[in-house]
């Protein structure tokens, strides 16, 4: 009698739990495409190109997840989201994954009920100065007394104040409501330096009348780890997104590229064979809820992490951002993928 009660109770609990945490993977497979929330337009991360296709690092990450799930990187639909509606869209199930240059913070991880699957781009607030106007400035610590262009009402403004206070330096903030206004004012020489996220500084530099005169200073005064997020409470889906990211890193580390992935399948290296799912009776992919060639599909679809980076923000793009902190750990960066075995 008691036993039956316990079983019944457990079954009910399971039922309740099942209802509370919808299975995103099943939903996605049923729909036949991945719904991906991206930025409405941010150079290098997500923006439509001339043909209207979404390009950028964040957009390509979604394609990688689609490739892992469906074996087809094109089975993804993009929802452009503003900074205000991004979390609502994820919470309400409008998007399956939020890949929208979102900073990983504890508040978002806990109170907002998100799970961050990794850090696809280590960003941080930096400074840019005009080297023609201010020759010899090589560090932000030399900016004492400078007039600095900044967008109002952003964390950027607060970080700036904290940094100068901590280093006991004076500065004059020149505050603008709009991004374009701040750009124009800086270009016209109304301020000595410009501050925003470093990735943004490179985009701003492209719009300057003499881009080569402007240098991005090495100091980073805030941590902005950007990464894809999913809803809390669906560990299976969280695992898929997380390991898609790690697979991108591991393939770069192993030298597997979009071009050579097919030949690499016949490699003898057991590590690579496991990674590519060609080892006999491997269960890595199926344990994840995918097929065993998921890594092959990802790389075939979008390339490895390095290829995505170079294509969208690195040397293959007009932005020309150096790898820096986003280099692999083997090359002095922070990108480290746990082993796939």
């Amino acid at each position: 009698m008691n036993k039956a009660k316990v079983i019944l109770g457990a079954a009910l609990l399971g039922l309740v739990a099942g209802a509370a945490s919808a299975d995103t993977l099943d939903d996605v497979k049923k729909k036949g495409f991945l719904q991906c929330g991206v930025n409405t337009g941010l150079a290098g991360f997500s923006s439509p190109n001339d043909k209207g296709e979404w390009t950028g690092l964040d957009a390509d990450f979604c394609r990688a997840v689609a490739a892992a799930v469906f074996g087809d990187a094109t089975k993804v639909k993009f929802t452009p989201l503003s900074a205000k509606d991004r979390f609502t869209a994820l919470q309400s199930g409008e998007v399956d994954i939020l890949s929208r240059n979102t900073t990983w913070t504890i508040n978002r991880d806990t109170a907002l009920g998100l799970n961050f699957a990794g850090i696809t781009y280590y960003d941080g607030q930096g400074f840019m100065v005009n080297s023609k106007k201010l020759p010899g400035i090589t560090s932000a610590l030399q900016l004492s007394g400078a007039a600095i262009c900044v967008q109002s009402g952003t964390t950027t403004e607060l970080n700036l104040a904290d940094y100068f206070k901590a280093n006991k330096m004076e500065y004059t903030p020149v505050v603008f409501e709009k991004f374009e206004e701040a750009n124009a004012a800086y270009d016209a020489g109304r301020c000595d330096a410009y501050t925003t996220d470093q990735s943004g500084l490179y985009a701003v530099r492209l719009q300057m009348s003499a881009p080569d005169d402007h240098v991005v200073l090495p100091e980073i005064i805030s941590k902005e780890p950007l990464g894809p997020a999913v809803r809390q409470g669906d560990d299976k889906w969280f695992d898929i997104v997380k390991w898609t990211y790690f697979a991108l890193l591991n393939t770069e580390e192993a030298g597997i590229t979009q071009a050579n992935v097919e030949e690499m399948k016949s490699t003898e290296n057991p590590d690579l064979r496991r990674l590519l799912g060609v080892e006999a009776d491997t269960k890595i992919g199926t344990d994840l809820g995918l097929t065993n060639d998921w890594v092959v599909n990802i790389v075939k679809g979008v390339g490895n992490y390095g290829e995505i980076f170079e294509r969208n923000v690195g040397t293959g793009s007009p932005l020309k951002i150096a790898r820096g902190a986003n280099a692999l750990w083997t090359k002095g960066g922070l990108q480290y993928g746990p082993p796939i075995r």
């Binding site: 409405t40 337009g41 923006s47 439509p48 190109n49 001339d50 492209l206 719009q207 009348s209 007009p318």
Partner: peptide, 14 residues
């Protein structure tokens, strides 16, 4: 128009 201006590095000029 705004999206094309702010988002697309292939056309970013002054």
């Amino acid at each position: 128009v705004k999206q094309s201006i702010s988002g697309d590095p292939t056309w970013a000029t002054p």
